[in-house]
């Protein structure tokens, strides 16, 4: 018993130090542009852009391999920010922006399968086997990963309602001309 625990600990230590050394020698200089681009992305690592996560998406953007319109959850605001940073022009009317959305569970048809919990990058869904699940509004980033895995279509994306606290004055109409 002691032996096996000890050997596991020793293994952990040895592998850990190998990783530590490797990270020091093999580290890549972080690209400052890439870091700035990363800060503009939503950070939910949902993979809808076709990359593993926002970090890889930012790297591709920095190299000019990906269009600034790559991130669906980011919406128009992200496209604008990215375009301004990279100095590219985009036709914003082509960007579909459904506005900020978050997932919502229709309680009557949730079967409590727990599949959505596994895919949610931010642990925004609570629930247990055979119990009705629910989305914590504040933690949901609107990545919509959970929608595809739900077997009963109990999960759907809903626009975040505008509240008094979030409403802002529009730009004056006379600013258009």
């Amino acid at each position: 018993m002691l032996m096996s625990v000890g050997s596991l600990a020793a293994m952990g230590l040895a592998l850990g130090s190998v990783l530590g050394v490797a990270s020091r020698y093999l580290s890549v200089e972080a690209d400052p542009i890439e870091a700035e681009l990363l800060a503009m992305l939503p950070g939910s690592q949902c993979g809808q852009c076709g990359y593993v996560g926002c970090g890889q998406a930012a790297a591709a953007l920095a190299k000019g391999e990906a269009p600034v319109t790559l991130c669906p959850p980011g919406g128009k605001a992200t496209v604008e920010a990215l375009a301004a940073k990279l100095g590219v022009k985009v036709d914003l009317s082509q960007v579909v922006d459904s506005g900020p959305q978050i997932a919502e569970v229709t309680e009557e048809i949730c079967v409590g399968c727990c599949r959505c919990i596994k895919v949610c990058p931010t642990d925004a869904i609570i629930g247990a086997a055979k119990q009705i699940h629910n989305v914590i509004r504040e933690a949901c980033t609107g990545c919509s990963s959970c929608i595809d895995v739900c077997p009963t279509e109990a999960l759907a994306m809903m626009p975040i309602p505008v509240t008094l606290q979030h409403w802002t004055w529009p730009k004056p109409a006379s600013a258009q001309h």
Partner: peptide
């Protein structure tokens, strides 16, 4: 939204750690 992005990053890290 900046605060939100930061919170998202923390949540993602927490999930990975979990």
């Amino acid at each position: 939204s900046k605060l939100r992005t930061e919170a998202t990053k923390r949540l993602v890290e927490a999930k990975t750690a979990r």
